[in-house]
Amino acid sequence: MDELQEEPRPARVMASADVDDRAEIGAGTTVWHLAQVREEARLGRNCVIGRGAYVGPGVRLGDNVKMQNYALAYEPATLGDGVFLGPAAVLTNDTYPRAVTPEGRLKTGEDWEAVGVVIRDGAAIGARAVCVAPVTVGRWALVAAGAVVVSDVPDFALVVGVPARRVGWVGRAGVRLVAKGDGRFVCPSTGAEYVESDGQLTEVWTGLDPLGPA
């Protein structure tokens, strides 16, 4: 007999949260106190939107995303599955930020074009880090707390500082990889294996296969 499939729990939205009726909230997602989710935003399943976090109009979140307290994702940001935004992390959207036009008139939406930050699956953005649009943070990359990202981040890269620069590689567990020579790296936590070529890192074994590498 087939095993019974557990039905996903409904989304939960705290009474003090501000969620627009036109936003889409996936099953199992929780939106905590004082968070704001704007119109046309789409949140996947089993996400956690922390206290005071902000999800801008039309922003897209995949499944299992965690936005910690006061994290800000401005439109048109796109976050893949399993993305982590630390407390007070910011994804910007204005290349030339100004409150007013050169003539001194208050800017409106017609006076500028929003540009977005893309965060690929599994990547993590540390507390108070800022990603200055338009940039892409690659799969499973790790942006250190307080870093300012102004250029694209490769998959599995560990970046720190202002401006952010790569200082190493991390695996899916977020642990810094250990070099084994000849461009090969291993995760000390999971045993996963990687190879570096032309400034890019590729998995050769995820460490999830109980039979080990081929």
Rank of each mutant, 00 (worst) to 15 (best):
N69K: 12
Q36A: 08
V148K: 03
R60K: 14
W205E: 03
P10H: 14
V130F: 01
E196R: 06
V37L: 06
A164M: 11
L43I: 15
T30H: 05
A145R: 07
V162P: 00
V115G: 01
A192W: 02
I125R: 04
V150D: 03
S16K: 11
E24Y: 12
K107E: 06
L177N: 05
W32I: 09
K180H: 13
G138C: 11
E203D: 07
E203R: 04
E113S: 09
A157P: 04
D111F: 10
R184H: 15
G82S: 03
E6K: 15
S16V: 11
G146W: 01
P10F: 05
A89M: 08
E40N: 13
V186L: 08
K107Q: 14
K66D: 12
A145V: 08
G58Y: 07
D94Q: 14
T29Y: 01
I25Y: 05
Q200L: 11
V149I: 14
Q68W: 08
A179P: 15
V37M: 07
G109D: 11
E110T: 09
Y70A: 04
V148C: 05
R51D: 05
A23K: 03
R60Y: 08
W169A: 02
A145S: 13
M14Q: 13
A77F: 04
V31N: 00
L106Y: 11
V137I: 14
R165K: 15
A15K: 11
F156R: 00
T190S: 15
T78P: 00
G181Q: 06
L4Q: 15
E75V: 04
G50H: 00
E3R: 13
G199S: 11
N64E: 15
S197E: 15
S16D: 07
G212D: 06
V118D: 00
D81T: 08
W140S: 05
G109L: 15
P213R: 13
G26L: 04
N69P: 10
G58V: 03
A133T: 02
G86C: 10
S197G: 10
A173N: 12
W205N: 09
G171V: 10
R128C: 09
C131A: 15
K180A: 13
A179R: 10
A141G: 10
R165P: 04
